[in-house]
């Protein structure tokens, strides 16, 4: 009876896996199809006339390596920014005491709830005035903080035993040493996991970079993808899928390397 029940659950879970992964396979399969095949052999995951033409066209039309570098650079900048500001702010909330702490925290967390349509244009105006249009810093600047990072680090810090902190105070260890040498190593799993998530989200970002980046040489991958979606002339689906497949490589690698952290400790501190 028991193994039968368990198999029933496994069947359900496998169906879910299939539903989630099939679109991915579809995307990759189409990247190796010709335009005609993509229309007329839709249900076939193995291309009838497999071709590398899409990838060749892409490498001819766009500077792939440059695109990947631009995207990587941008995502790294944003991730490092979010991590550092998040850690500093969380530390302040956890271990400092000051008046109005509740309100400041409330204000910070409220920023998660502000829709992007509100901030798009005013931010654009600020970046334009600061002459940062078309630069990586211009894209990254408004995104250097993320209150979700603060919330997560705060949760993780709360799990660190008070006794550890108190003994550090007794030993007169200065704040930044406490942060760097004790707290951060303890929080390492959280940092890695939330950092990976920040990176992947920033990698796929396109609404804001579209406003700021103007020259092809500064484009990121999602912007380049826009170049292949055309309502007026018709979208070349396999070509777009080839670019989409290229887009997924770095996030996939990061995921494979850090999945242990991402999947196990999004909210735990991994305290040993």
């Amino acid at each position: 009876m028991r193994p039968f029940k368990a198999n029933g659950w496994h069947l359900l879970l496998l169906v879910i896996c299939l539903a989630l992964i099939l679109p991915v396979l579809f995307m990759v399969a189409n990247s190796f199809k010709t335009l005609q095949d993509s229309y007329h052999t839709m249900w076939q995951l193995i291309p009838l006339h497999p071709t590398l033409k899409n990838y060749q066209t892409l490498s001819r039309q766009v500077a792939l390596l440059r695109l990947i570098w631009n995207t990587f650079f941008m995502a790294t900048l944003v991730t490092l920014g979010k991590l550092s500001t998040g850690l500093l702010a969380a530390y302040a909330f956890q271990y400092f005491h000051f008046r109005g702490k509740k309100w400041v925290y409330f204000a910070f967390v409220a920023t998660i709830f502000i829709p992007f349509t509100v901030t798009m244009i005013p931010n654009y105006l600020v970046i334009a005035k600061a002459n940062l249009l078309n630069t990586a810093l211009g894209v990254a600047l408004p995104q250097l903080c993320d209150a979700t990072g603060i919330m997560i680090f705060l949760k993780a810090m709360a799990k660190i035993p008070r006794s550890l902190i108190e003994s550090a105070y007794l030993d007169q260890i200065p704040t930044h040493r406490l942060l760097m040498n004790i707290i951060i190593p303890i929080l390492r799993p959280s940092i890695i996991s939330i950092g990976a998530i920040f990176f992947i989200n920033s990698w796929n970002e396109y609404v804001w970079p579209t406003l700021i980046l103007k020259d092809k040489s500064s484009f990121t991958l999602p912007l380049a993808l826009q170049n292949y979606i055309s309502s007026e002339g018709g979208t070349n689906f396999p070509l777009a899928m080839a670019l989409a497949t290229i887009m997924i490589i770095v996030p996939l690698v990061i995921y494979m390397v850090f999945q242990r952290y991402i999947l196990n400790s999004i909210s735990n501190s991994g305290l040993k």
Partner: peptide
């Protein structure tokens, strides 16, 4: 610094 110098941008 790189961002300020416009690396990645024209």
């Amino acid at each position: 610094l790189g961002g300020l110098l416009g690396v990645g941008g024209a």
